[in-house]
Design a protein around this nucleic acid. Structure first.
Length: 333
DNA sequence: AACCCTTTGAAGGCG
DNA sequence: CGCCTTCAAAGGGTT
């Protein structure tokens, strides 16, 4: 745990109320004078050695790297894939959280200069007003109406073969650059794009609009089997899912994972995350601060992109398998 | 196929 | 306010 100032508040957090170094991260603070790497091997709760510990070849390689530098200690903690006790200047695998700037490269330039693309991995190019139904003004971050998504049916009672040939109402957006685009949330256009209009527009080349106009949307939906609707709805929910912004540690993990994987020849994320967790605690305040700052910007950008979004929206989306608690096992976090 | 594991941090709910 | 829970990423492992 980072040092607290005399007031008990973290000085780094003083001007960032959302940044917290508290929260009982005792492992990181209990012995700051000892590099976490030095105690990694001893107590990894999740056994690395059982599964995919640093393999023989990579161990030799790591040892060579370590010995190759005059300042590097030859004490190598292989079981945790760490390089402890590295003096200043040693270019070993110990963290050098250099430039974090771009975590994920957006494929089109967004005014908000995204670091991470939420949902569908992409960001929108600006929408021209003429392309919006009703000539609506384009906005950065179309207001979401996630809870409306399921309330208005948008599907047609026709076979997949038939519907697959129907152009998507906003297909022009998707076809741009042959990439997915701004995470258009189902319902984001609901106020402009009522279901009946959608159906009429989409099927105008297939069936008579005259006929459709006479058919109530609910009646149309009777043609769709419940299962089919359920599948489509689930698919739709996945597409419209807005993910939480990444926190500082997640940003750090995202950047450093590949490095750890290559160093330790590990692929199992649980083991890698344990290593990353320890390295995180080994970071200096300044180094961690950079990630906290990055995470803060991420949250701000997320708020701009998805005003009104709440973390609560994603609750219950992942079904948890009930795991039997072992005797004496408490919730440890 | 869906969830578990494992990490830290943010955020929401509840008493 | 403090505690608990969920979910962000990742990919091999498990059910």
């Amino acid at each position: 745990m980072p040092q607290l100032d005399s007031t008990g508040r973290d000085p780094l957090a003083a001007d960032q109320e959302t940044i917290s170094f508290t929260g009982g991260r005792e492992r990181g603070g209990e012995n700051r004078d000892i590099l976490p790497a030095e105690r990694d091997a001893a107590d990894l709760p999740y056994s690395l050695t059982n599964q995919s510990d640093c393999k023989e070849a990579s161990l030799k390689e790591l040892e060579q790297v370590s010995r190759g530098h005059p300042h590097c200690s030859t004490h190598v903690d292989y079981s945790g894939c760490f390089f402890p006790s590295q003096p200043e200047g040693c270019p070993g695998p110990t963290l050098q959280p250099s430039d974090v700037a771009v975590v994920q490269q957006p494929h089109c330039i967004h005014p908000l200069t995204p670091l991470i693309a939420y949902s569908r991995d992409q960001f929108p190019c600006l929408i021209h007003p003429s392309h919006l139904p009703g000539g609506a003004e384009p906005e950065i971050g179309i207001p979401r109406q996630p809870h409306m998504a399921h309330t208005i049916p948008t599907y047609c009672p026709f076979s997949p073969e038939a519907t697959s040939q129907i152009p998507h109402p906003v297909g022009w957006l998707i076809s741009q650059q042959n990439q997915s685009v701004y995470p258009i949330v189902q319902g984001g256009f609901n106020h402009l794009y009522p279901a009946a209009v959608t159906i009429r527009t989409s099927l105008s080349n297939v069936i008579s609009c005259k006929w459709l106009r006479k058919v109530d949307t609910d009646t149309v939906l009777l043609f769709i089997s419940r299962r089919k609707r359920s599948d489509l709805k689930n698919e739709d929910e996945k597409k419209n899912h807005i993910k939480k912004p990444l926190n500082a540690f997640m940003l750090y993990m995202k950047e450093m994972r590949a490095k750890v994987v290559s160093e330790c020849m590990l692929k199992e994320s649980a083991a890698i995350n344990q290593i990353l967790g320890r390295r995180w605690h080994a970071l200096s305040r300044e180094e961690q601060g950079r990630y906290y700052e990055l995470a803060k910007k991420e949250r701000q950008r997320h708020m701009q992109l998805y005003p009104g979004w709440s973390a609560r929206d994603n609750y219950g989306k992942k079904k948890k398998r009930k795991r039997e608690k072992l005797p004496g096992e408490d919730h440890v976090k």
